[in-house]
């Protein structure tokens, strides 16, 4: 992937303002109809990558320190959270499968209570993920400072856990959306 910061003409910074990303993307999209599909795809892709802080961090590291390879194991600090998420997701999936199989309004109505409970459980998980994620995101300014001295170790170490947190968050959100649609 080519440099998304450069594609949208934005500074290579972790602390981009969402409004700046939007307005730059829109500026580049002015000639949407005229732009080649390739260019437009690049703009859209760049916006999607930069709007999410975690993929922004990944893109930033790729641009600034391409030699660093991120750690892919689950950090011990996240193990407790991981142990909680698995069972809730599995329970929710089983419930959603039962809901999908139900062919009558009554059979589905019988599952409503469980669906409401599951929704609360998943929401609680999302609320647990939030602060953990925030502790990493709050360090973006410090990562930028360290980068001035070519020190990317802390930023690279944060990427692994953040990717896990994002994955879990996405999984919880998917379940939540599916539950909303029951």
């Amino acid at each position: 992937m080519t440099n998304p910061f450069a594609i949208l003409g934005l500074p290579e910074s972790l602390l981009l303002d969402p409004a700046a990303i939007e307005s730059s993307w829109r500026e580049h999209h002015r000639d949407n109809e005229a732009a080649s599909a390739g260019d437009a795809s690049d703009h859209n892709r760049a916006r999607a990558l930069l709007s999410d802080p975690i993929s922004r961090l990944a893109a930033w590291l790729e641009v600034k320190a391409p030699a660093i390879t991120p750690d892919r194991s689950i950090p011990p600090a996240l193990m407790d959270l991981f142990a909680k998420i698995g069972p809730v997701l599995a329970r929710t999936d089983a419930l959603l499968a039962r809901h999908r199989q139900a062919t009558t309004a009554l059979a589905r109505a019988l599952l409503t209570k469980d669906c409401v409970t599951a929704q609360l459980e998943v929401q609680a998980l999302l609320q647990e993920i939030q602060p953990v994620k925030a502790t990493f995101l709050d360090r973006f300014a410090a990562f930028e400072k360290a980068a001035e001295h070519e020190d990317f170790a802390a930023a690279a170490a944060a990427l692994g856990p953040l990717k896990f947190l994002k994955k879990w968050e996405d999984q919880c959100r998917e379940r939540l959306l599916a539950l909303i649609a029951t």
Binding site: T104, A105, L106, A109, K113, V116
Partner: peptide
């Protein structure tokens, strides 16, 4: 059972 289904949903909330 339409009403019954609606009552169930109501009770769940």
């Amino acid at each position: 059972t339409q009403t019954l289904a609606a009552l169930l949903v109501e009770a769940a909330f």
